[in-house]
Design a protein around this nucleic acid. Structure first.
Lengths: 228, 228
DNA sequence: AGGTGTTTGAAATGTACGTTTGAATCACAA
DNA sequence: TTGTGATTCAAACGTACATTTCAAACACCT
């Protein structure tokens, strides 16, 4: 029964929380080592640099999540007939929630970190991610295309990025939102609640009817076929 | 015909671009004054502090946008019967695009700045915004509630924030996305094109059926009534 | 116990930041 | 032209940052 955590482990634990809350650039190594109760120099000793620490923090989750997602995508792609959109999006839920086994609140922390990776300017992170896991996401695009065969490729491109924005922004500002939600609606909302609320929202959004729109703005109605 | 721009104007112009691209905390006054070709001390002389500069940058757009939105919301609220969701969301288009009169690319820059206000940790901005413009957004919530009477208030809160994320993230990465879209799909997409693509996506998303979900994760299907 | 390679510690390095200072320069009315 | 308040300027202030250094402490094997 060893309660002793290694220095590296203590650094990673402190770093992930602070990075998720404050962002990568706005979290100093001094804050991290102070919260982790280790010496300032130990970050550079164990990880080399702050950049590499950021990657190590993310990698702890990615090495668990991405093979699981890849496996699920491959399973769905092998199905006899195309899966509908809800089925495709639903495969994210279990792998994401299993990140809570990696660390307490792992799911929330990972998704916040993912959001930070996009909103903070971290060129090395984008490269790191695409290089290691780009081919997994290609399978997702294929699955969504099969689920929405009537959606033009250009429209699908935009809608997937809209959806990425929804998820990333929600997670990056998760704390603030959850606080407001609890104060205003007496709803205790955990990360699982947010994910489950996202699914029907994204399903409906991605599969929305394509608008026949007047590209140059007039006083004409802007959308067609949209009456609720 | 005076081409001479005031120091304050030059500072605001340089600051808004840099803030939008790099975020508030990661943009230094030295970068701003260097790009504006003014003296470092002039920021503190004209605006007092970096915080107040950030607010001044946003205020240039907010004083134009918010009264326009308020006016539109009030008009819709006076209607005999409830407006549908597309009608409500459509009123954003013209006021947003008119920000291009405030400054070149004003619409994109403003929406990027708005996103930074949420993802960067800027407590003073949240207070500043809610204090000055909170009551305008209350009208929007009311309109959406009227358009979607079956949507519980808590669900609506989350979906409006999901939607804010969609818009803000899309604008933040707008340049990169537009380039890819043009290269891959031969589609020339400007900010107006993106906004018009967003409308049907957001309409469908906000009005999506509320999921009857199994709150604790089992192997049961996660969504109901969602077949495409 | 002694020796060796690993890890920790306190201190310092150099750089960048927001802000302040006080003199120099400007615009312009008297 | 002279005087005055507004603006600009170069320089400096104090603080915080990531990273480096090197001696001290530690762990572990023979």
């Amino acid at each position: 029964m060893t309660n002793k955590l290694s220095t590296q482990h203590k650094i990673l634990d402190a770093a992930q929380s602070l990075f998720a809350e404050t962002g990568f650039n706005d979290t100093s190594l001094r804050q991290i080592t102070s919260q982790a109760e280790v010496n300032l120099a130990s970050v550079n000793y164990h990880f080399g640099s702050k950049k590499e620490l950021i990657q190590a923090v993310l990698q702890r989750y990615l090495v668990v999540l991405m093979p699981r997602l890849d496996q699920e995508f491959t399973r769905l792609l092998a199905a006899q007939q195309a899966n509908n959109l809800s089925q495709v999006l639903s495969v994210f839920v279990k792998p994401l929630l299993e990140l809570n086994k990696v660390h307490q609140n792992g799911t929330r922390i990972f998704l916040q970190l993912l959001g930070r990776g996009y909103t903070d300017v971290q060129g090395h992170l984008r490269w790191f991610f695409n290089h290691n896991y780009g081919r997994v996401l290609d399978k997702l695009v294929l699955l969504v295309q099969q689920a929405c065969p009537d959606l033009p490729a250009g429209e699908l491109f935009w809608r997937l990025h809209f959806s990425l924005g929804t998820v990333v922004f929600t997670m990056a500002s998760n704390e603030a939102l959850a606080e407001i939600a609890e104060a205003d609606f007496n709803e205790k909302v955990d990360i699982e609640g947010v994910i489950l609320r996202l699914l029907p929202y994204l399903s409906a959004a991605i599969a929305a009817p394509v608008s026949t729109v007047t590209p140059i703005s007039h006083n004409a109605p802007l959308l067609a076929g949209e009456g609720r």
